[in-house]
Structure formats: C-alpha cells, structure tokens
Design a protein around this nucleic acid. Structure first.
Lengths: 169, 169
DNA sequence: TTGGAGTGTCAACAAGGCTGACTTAAAATA
DNA sequence: TATTTTAAGTCAGCCTTGTTGACACTCCAA
C-alpha cells in the first residue's frame, strides 16, 4: 500500500525499511511477547496468580528491600493496583514487608524462602526460553536483539532500567 | 546466585550466558513491550478503545476478508471475547462484516474507510517507534533483533506467522 | 434429513487496570 | 512547636478484557 520499494535492509546501508518489513517487526514483537509470557503464565495459573504477581516478585527479588514507592515507579501502576497484589503475596507468605529503619514510613519488601522459590521457578522458565531463543538466533544475533529491545523502550524507562542495572548488590 | 561465570557472550563461541545476562534480556523484553504499546495506547484511549480493538484492526487490515474463526486462531482469545470487540467496531462503522459468498455461515471482515484511517494512525505510530529502534540499534542489529524475536515465539504460532507472511496479496 | 460446523448472543464471573476519598504514622519544614 | 507533606494502606466503585456455560440460528455435507 505505502511501500516505498522492495529494497531490503542491506548490511551497512542507510537503513531503508519498507512498511512491509516494519509490519513484520511489529508482528514479531506481538507474537514474541506472547511466547515470552506463556511459560510463566502456566505456572502462575497453578498458584492462582497472574502476571501482576510475577512482576512484583521479579522486581522485589531483583532489588531486595525496595520500597513500595520504588516498585510503583518501575511497574507504572497505581498504588491501589499494586497493593491488591502485594497484599495477597504477603498474606500467602511469599513477600515480607518490614518497616524502614531510617524512615519508618517506608516499608522494605523482601521475598521469603517460599517467595524465592516461586520466583526461581518463574524466572527459570523464562531464562530457558531466552536461552533457547539465543541459541536459535545464533551468537551474532544476541547483541542485535538486546540493542533492538533497548532502543524500543521509552527513554525515561530506559534510564530507570539502566539505574537498576547498576545498583545491583 | 546461580551465575556460572562472568564470561560474556563472545563473538562466535558456544554461547555461555550468565543468569545476569539472561535477566537483562528478560527485563529488556518487558520494558520494550511497554514502549512498543505506549503510542497506540494513547491514540486508542482518545477513541475509547483498548488493545483488543487494535489487534482486531491490525489483523483485519492485514488479511482483508478474513473470517472470525481465522481471527480467533491468530489472536488466541475466545469467540465471546473477540465478538464483544468486533461488535463495537462494527457498530462504530470501522469494520464491515459481510456474509461469506462460498460459505454463507462465515463472515468476512473488512475495514471501512474510517477503520483504515484509525488502523493507519495506530500502525504509523508503531512503525515510527520501530524505525527509531532500528535507527538507534544500527543496521547490523536489525537482523539479530528479528531473529531473536522469532526464536522466542511458540513454534505453532511461528508457523501461523510464517503462513500469514507468505499468504500476503 | 440430520448432524455438525460456524457464528452470534446472553449471563455471570475474575483479574487487574483505573479514579477518588480518606486514614494513619512519620518526617520535614515553617 | 505546630503545620504540612509524604509513604503507605484501605474502601468503594468503575472499566476492559479475559474466562465458562448455555443456547439459538444458519446452512453445508454426508
């Protein structure tokens, strides 16, 4: 329809992309994300949880002792929405909420042993999928894959992500 | 925790990936998908639609005259769920549903001019994001990006995707 | 002509988003 | 010290989008 030409993406060129090529990328993104979440979704379902729980577990595990406000910023949801999820995770003994030491208004969040166990099962499924994808795509594709993903994030979120990356214990 | 080593992914090696590297890939996937849907989400919101409407518009546009059953298979939702979305799109005059000519039980779905217009706005936002990502990642990353995404899909879905790709008019 | 496929619709429910209003406790500040 | 702001939690209510289950209609094909 609006395709400019049939010129493919050539090695080192100025990057002419047809609408057709872009459409394929868009659909690949859609289907890939579905594949990416499929395995955890099955595990979560067995426990009566959803993706929202997975996200919370992931980021609490990744930044031990993070505060509720911090989590809100990363996840980009409302306090009420997150609270509903956190409440069940705490009630089920997967997450522990401790009053902050320096600022007693804050709550620091930690995974319990049970929480770590579920998180490990979820992330292992996802890591395995990621490994398989990397294997299938080949070593030379790995860098390009990550670069493409990072370039697609919103800038502020990418900053967030970069900060998180460095702040690791 | 379970990191095997600090050995990075090396050019042509056997692909040893640390858990840390995999975790970064997992988070990149999460944040990238959010960026990927952010622009269309804003447009959809102005029209009172959601992502479900976007998906329907996309695949009807992409395979003109597709049947409801076809769409169900691609989207992976229930008939009832899709029907709710289709009903509003038809009522709003964005989608036309014509009784099948060869099999009058089937309905063939088409975008109206208004439907094409919205679809174009949505996909243009997404294409622009994709172009920017490719530009930022650089030409040598483009192939790797697509390969990584395709390798992450479920196999049956990838077949679907491949078929769709070839069946284009 | 009958069975089954494709489609549509009704009802009811759940997850997980949202807004708005309000409380409590603690920290920061005037 | 008194006041304001901040962090967290909660209640109520709404929306979208997913789910089941039941059922009706059309119409093709055996």
């Amino acid at each position: 329809m609006n395709d400019r030409s049939n010129t493919p993406v050539s090695g080192e060129s100025l990057l002419f992309l047809t609408d057709e090529q872009l459409r394929k990328g868009i659909e690949a993104m859609f289907f890939a994300y579905r594949g990416f979440t499929a395995d955890p979704d099955r595990i979560l379902d067995e426990h009566g949880y959803g993706r929202a729980h997975h996200r919370a577990l992931h980021f609490i595990n990744r930044t031990h002792g993070t505060t509720v406000n911090n989590l809100l910023a990363i996840l980009g949801v409302t306090k009420q929405s997150l609270n509903r999820v956190l409440r069940t995770l705490i009630a089920d003994g997967l997450v522990e909420s401790r009053v902050g030491r320096t600022d007693r208004r804050e709550r620091n969040l930690y995974l319990t042993e049970a929480g770590r166990e579920l998180e490990r099962a979820l992330s292992e499924a996802q890591r395995e999928r990621m490994r398989a994808a990397y294997r299938a795509a080949g070593p030379q594709a790995v860098a390009g894959f990550r670069q493409g993903l990072e370039a697609m994030m919103d800038h502020e979120i990418r900053r967030h992500y970069a900060n998180l990356r460095d702040r690791r214990p």
